[in-house]
Simulated scan of single mutants.
Amino acid sequence: MTTIYDFSVKMPNGTEQSLKDYEGKTLLIVNTASKCGFTPQFAGLQELYLKYKDQGLEVLGFPCSQFHNQEFDNIEETTEFCQVNYGVTFPIFAKIDVNGENEDPLYTFLKSQKNGVLSKNIKWNFTKFLVDKSGQVVERYAPTTEPEKIEKDIAALLS
């Protein structure tokens, strides 16, 4: 059976990181954008990360420019923007596509596990996937779902 741990992702510097490094942790995986109406959700994501990281939560951010080009071209600008404006300390990975011909295999897997409304495709920035400690996708949340609305689900998986 395929799990999230079967995938590797690119770090901002271009090196590969195996998601096996996160085995046994609860993951919140989010496609992000720095110039989106939902960008203030970075603050809520960071709050969740700080509150629960010692209990095994990891928030993984994947910048994406597929929705009205709302991400910087340069990944260094993205990571600096997240740190300066929202104090982000959770991992931000290299920019990816979440839909289409060049979509990252991680997102192909995530979408195969949990459909969105009417479609598997990601509709917008800040779609969130909650992954349990065994690497299985347990929930998908719409971009409009504020991070604090996910907290009870995260807490339940961590207990």
Rank of each mutant, 00 (worst) to 15 (best):
residue 4 I to W: 02
residue 8 S to L: 05
residue 63 P to D: 09
residue 17 Q to T: 01
residue 130 L to Y: 06
residue 114 K to A: 09
residue 158 L to D: 06
residue 49 Y to T: 01
residue 102 N to H: 15
residue 138 V to L: 04
residue 138 V to S: 05
residue 50 L to W: 07
residue 105 P to Q: 11
residue 22 Y to K: 06
residue 106 L to M: 06
residue 112 S to N: 14
residue 54 D to I: 06
residue 65 S to M: 05
residue 20 K to A: 15
residue 142 A to T: 14
residue 88 V to I: 12
residue 75 I to M: 01
residue 85 N to S: 13
residue 81 F to G: 11
residue 72 F to N: 14
residue 127 T to Q: 02
residue 57 L to K: 05
residue 158 L to H: 01
residue 146 E to S: 12
residue 83 Q to A: 14
residue 135 G to L: 02
residue 104 D to W: 00
residue 36 C to K: 05
residue 72 F to Y: 15
residue 24 G to R: 05
residue 47 E to D: 15
residue 101 E to Y: 09
residue 91 P to V: 02
residue 82 C to F: 04
residue 132 D to S: 10
residue 144 T to W: 07
residue 74 N to V: 13
residue 89 T to F: 06
residue 3 T to G: 05
residue 23 E to H: 05
residue 13 N to Y: 04
residue 7 F to H: 04
residue 134 S to D: 14
residue 42 F to T: 05
residue 109 F to Y: 15
residue 136 Q to T: 12
residue 132 D to F: 00
residue 148 E to Y: 06
residue 149 K to V: 06
residue 87 G to S: 04
residue 16 E to D: 15
residue 126 F to A: 00
residue 133 K to E: 10
residue 2 T to G: 00
residue 142 A to S: 14
residue 126 F to E: 01
residue 136 Q to L: 11
residue 1 M to E: 13
residue 62 F to P: 02
residue 142 A to I: 08
residue 58 E to A: 12
residue 152 K to E: 13
residue 66 Q to E: 11
residue 155 A to P: 02
residue 127 T to Y: 05
residue 81 F to I: 03
residue 103 E to H: 04
residue 126 F to V: 03
residue 72 F to C: 05
residue 80 E to S: 14
residue 147 P to Y: 02
residue 23 E to D: 11
residue 140 R to A: 11
residue 10 K to Y: 11
residue 136 Q to D: 13
residue 67 F to E: 06
residue 56 G to F: 08
residue 68 H to P: 10
residue 49 Y to V: 09
residue 75 I to W: 07
residue 76 E to L: 11
residue 96 I to V: 15
residue 99 N to M: 00
residue 68 H to E: 14
residue 137 V to D: 10
residue 61 G to H: 05
residue 79 T to G: 08
residue 110 L to D: 09
residue 67 F to Y: 00
residue 62 F to K: 10
residue 99 N to V: 11
residue 152 K to Q: 14
residue 120 K to I: 01
residue 139 E to T: 08
residue 128 K to E: 07
residue 96 I to Q: 00
residue 72 F to D: 14
residue 26 T to Q: 09
residue 128 K to A: 07
residue 102 N to K: 15
residue 10 K to R: 12
residue 97 D to P: 08
residue 156 A to I: 11
residue 51 K to G: 10
residue 81 F to W: 02
residue 39 T to H: 01
residue 113 Q to Y: 02
residue 140 R to I: 04
residue 100 G to N: 03
residue 122 I to M: 02
residue 139 E to M: 12
residue 106 L to Q: 12
residue 74 N to P: 08
residue 4 I to Q: 02
residue 145 T to A: 01
residue 96 I to M: 01
residue 39 T to Q: 11
residue 34 S to D: 01
residue 63 P to W: 07
residue 44 G to V: 10
residue 88 V to L: 06
residue 109 F to S: 09
residue 143 P to T: 11
residue 38 F to E: 09
residue 137 V to G: 10
residue 26 T to G: 01
residue 123 K to Y: 06
residue 111 K to R: 10
residue 100 G to E: 08
residue 81 F to H: 14
residue 6 D to V: 04
residue 122 I to T: 09
residue 102 N to S: 14
